[in-house]
């Protein structure tokens, strides 16, 4: 579903601040793969996701989604096949617009927008139905401005928006990092459910080792802009945090030093 061929990304190329964020990065996902991505600060996880989403271009290599070469496509065009949830709950929704208006924007992802009404009564029923599955009581607040919702509610809504039009690829960029542990768990459960129900090919970046182990069918660990560990299937199911730490040490020759990942 997603094939990444040797992409490379440098920031501030040619200056003293040059930083190689991704180097010769290769990855291939099968349809329905739910891959968790873990790694320390500066490992290139977010850069990788942003390159796939088209927030910035790559210096080398190519990205194919379902056989389509999207390497040169601008961000808004790639969005027709990609659903995204961001780390910052404010990022994924328009705060001054209503819940139903936000959903209507997502419902038209990948479609040419015209001068027909931005939202129809028929859709409202569909949205109510979907929102009731979130169990947050949002189905009765269709007109409420999204800015009035809590961070957890906004992330749940963003998740619903990202999957409303079944995407070929779902990108979750540390989407629970800004939430309290209880809300984070709830949003993760929802993510699991949406991914399973839609059989979505998913990349989930996380700082949390436990989350990376408990969710998905495959785990990759990044270090200095490349994949250093790739664990799938049976082996992934047996994995523990201690294993992961040990194997990180073996592969990278360094201690895994990241309090946020270890303590939570």
């Amino acid at each position: 579903m997603l094939v990444i061929n040797g992409i490379e990304k440098k920031f501030n190329a040619g200056t003293v601040n040059e930083k190689v964020a991704l180097s010769n990065f290769n990855l291939s996902l099968a349809e329905g793969d739910f891959v968790t991505v873990i790694g320390g600060n500066g490992a290139g996880k977010s850069t990788f996701l942003n390159c796939v989403a088209g927030v910035f271009g790559v210096d080398k290599g190519s990205i194919l989604i379902d056989g389509l070469d999207v390497t040169k496509l601008p961000e808004h065009k790639r969005s027709s096949v990609i659903g995204r949830v961001f780390q910052d709950p404010m990022m994924g929704t328009a705060g001054n617009m209503g819940i139903e208006e936000n959903l209507a924007l997502a419902y038209r992802r990948g479609k040419t927008r015209s001068l027909s009404w931005g939202i129809s009564n028929k859709e409202r029923e569909i949205y109510k139905e979907y929102l009731s599955h979130l169990d947050l009581g949002l189905e009765n607040r269709l007109h409420a401005k999204v800015g009035l919702l809590s961070g957890g509610q906004r992330q749940a809504l963003t998740l619903l928006m990202a999957t409303l039009k079944k995407p070929k690829l779902l990108l979750l960029d540390e989407h629970t990092a800004a939430l309290d542990p209880k809300t984070a768990d709830k949003v993760l459960q929802l993510s699991d459910r949406f991914v399973k129900e839609g059989n979505l090919t998913t990349l989930m970046v996380t700082h949390n080792m436990r989350h990376a182990i408990e969710h998905g069918n495959r785990l990759i660990m990044m270090h200095e802009g490349r994949v250093i560990l790739d664990i799938k299937g049976e082996e992934k199911q047996q994995l523990t945090v201690e294993d992961l730490l040990k194997r990180f040490g073996q592969v990278s020759g360094e201690e895994f030093a990241n309090d946020r990942a270890l303590l939570s």
């Binding site: 989403a53 601008p74 961000e75 808004h76 065009k77 969005s79 027709s80 990609i82 995204r84 961001f86 404010m90 990022m91 994924g92 929704t93 328009a94 705060g95 001054n96 617009m97 208006e101 209507a104 924007l105 997502a106 038209r108 992802r109 990948g110 479609k111 927008r113 015209s114 001068l115 027909s116 009404w117 931005g118 939202i119 928006m161």
Partner: peptide
């Protein structure tokens, strides 16, 4: 009428949150 249409809503979303607008396929 115009700001209630699909294009009008896309303009409002662009002003409100361009990042989100692009993620929803809007050419900001």
């Amino acid at each position: 009428w115009f700001f209630g249409t699909e294009i009008g809503c896309a303009i409002r979303a662009t002003g409100d949150n361009p990042q989100m607008a692009r993620a929803q396929g809007i050419n900001t």
